[in-house]
Amino acid sequence: MIELKNASFSYGAGSTVRDLSFTIDAGEFVAILGANGAGKTTTVKLIDGLLKPTSGSVLINGKDTAVTRVSERARQVGFLFQNPDQQICRNTVREEIAFGLTAVRGDLGEDGIRARTDEMLREFGFTGEEEPFSLSRGQRQLVALASVLAVQPEVIILDEPTTGLDYLECAHIMDMISRMNREQQMTVIMVCHDMEVVLDYARRALIISGGQLIADGPVEQVFRDEALLARSSILPPQIIGLSLRLGAGFEQVTTAEEAAEAVLRLRTGKEAAE
């Protein structure tokens, strides 16, 4: 469980995030939304312990991140950065996946690390001999994800994971994360500007504006609050926008299939009335 208790952080003059207080339970899939500069990345860096709060505290499983060792924290929380090139530092995909394991999973031993690396290579469809920097952007993001997931963190933080990816690459990465969230109860915290992705995968949304938490609730509910979204410079996903415009009979619509069903229901009802 992750707990933020009045956590604030400032890079210099003025606060970047102020008095953040919320809890994320194990197995949740949470999206952190907001305009550029709202404090989303700062919030997730506070959760990962990369930044220490200037006041308040951040606890992971009851332990303050300010006093947790880097290796221990990396074992608990994985962080997938927006730019995979910042993360990749080895010459082959195999070495890259093994790098994180060597740093934080010494308990596995040499054979265990090799076995776990092979498992991740199979799962992500790599031979292991590929040079990471010669791969496409999407493939590099997959390598970065594989090396993060290899250590089997309890929590994974995704900082704009779909930026620069095409539809198929994005779906591949998100489906894989979603599967691990469902099957292994891995907590997922995602910063994302793609509201379609948020609607498809996340179950809870937190909105940050001006460094403060201004909304926290189920994704569908948050996306239906037009005034709140306008205040946060967020445009709802197209299907939610459409259902809001159509009004009565479309309130529960969140997917194209549900929209089609609602339209058909309406048409059938109208035909029956005639």
Partner: peptide, 27 residues
Amino acid sequence: AQTARGVEFDTKNAFRKLGLMLPLCAP
């Protein structure tokens, strides 16, 4: 990014720190 993966750059041993930083030249 490497700190997030468990690389302890805050070590007081300067040689160890240098050793940890060298692989970062590639990216």
